[in-house]
Design a protein around this nucleic acid. Structure first.
Ligand SMILES: [Mn+2]
Ligand SMILES: [Mn+2]
Ligand SMILES: [Zn+2]
Ligand SMILES: [Zn+2]
Lengths: 132, 132
DNA sequence: CAGTTTTTTAGAACCATTATAAACTGCAAT
DNA sequence: ATTGCAGTTTATAATGGTTCTAAAAAACTG
């Protein structure tokens, strides 16, 4: 199975629960954005059984650490994750809290002219807030 | 006093506590970034008395709503605010969680080529994550 | 000043996230 | 197979930032 490798790379053994989480996260054409609660709900719907929140948090964090998921910086009381791990940006709809992908090509190259001593750039992320 | 207007504009009467919060927030040459806990600490230090957290939260939110403070989107369990309300961007030092201003001129113009129906752009913010 | 409204405050409530510790699972050695 | 063991899942508790509450204090009005 294709998820076993992702799990092993993330330092996790392929258990039933973790594979089910993978099915929800990675078994789609389209990538998507989610909070942990939304993921929990999605798992209940798709897999028709409940996985404890602790397992969901642990698995998501392991994937994020390994780079199979990204965290999106937004102002919210919940953490937003993204299954799209390519370099890209986001619209943030303030009305409903939903994110929309903004491809790199829709933003154009961003050239940071200033340097910070002893630090290197890990990522450059653009957040475009939308209102009515 | 110069703060009375800011408070009135924000729908708040100029009370002793609110004016003290203003002194800490706006009585400096330099702008700065802060979390509520850092602001609370700063108030204790500078004003030498304690203001209840509820008052601090209320005042900060009123200023933010009016545009006298900005919230900066970062991945953190705490909310980051900025007394610099000009259009600008940020470095985010992952090591210590500190923000550094990135002037618009250090980033260059950002041209979002994609439009979302019925929505208009409220802000465009770039977050540059720094690692060692 | 007296009466009314607004504000401040300490503490409770809320809720996303993290920690804990006991039950469970899968595998391996005997 | 039986047992032992390490890793995993789970329910639940703890944590901590933020918001709510309601009573006391302060500010305003006439
Ligand atoms: Mn997290
Ligand atoms: Mn807030
Ligand atoms: Zn995305
Ligand atoms: Zn700033």
């Amino acid at each position: 199975m294709k998820y076993i490798e992702k799990l092993r790379n993330s330092g996790l053994r392929p258990t039933k629960q973790r594979l089910q989480i993978c099915e929800v996260l990675f078994d789609t054409e389209k990538t998507f954005h989610f909070t942990i609660n939304e993921l929990d709900q999605k798992i209940k719907d798709k897999i028709n059984n409940k996985i404890s929140l602790a397992t969901i948090y642990n698995t998501v964090h392991a994937f994020e650490k390994k780079g199979y998921l990204k965290q999106i910086p937004v102002n919210s009381n919940q953490t937003y994750f993204d299954t799209n791990i390519t370099d890209h940006h986001h619209f943030y709809n303030l009305k409903d809290g939903k994110l929309i992908d903004l491809e790199n090509s829709d933003v154009g190259p961003i050239n940071i002219k200033r340097k910070i001593d002893g630090k290197k750039i890990k990522s450059i992320e653009v957040l475009v807030k939308l209102e009515d």
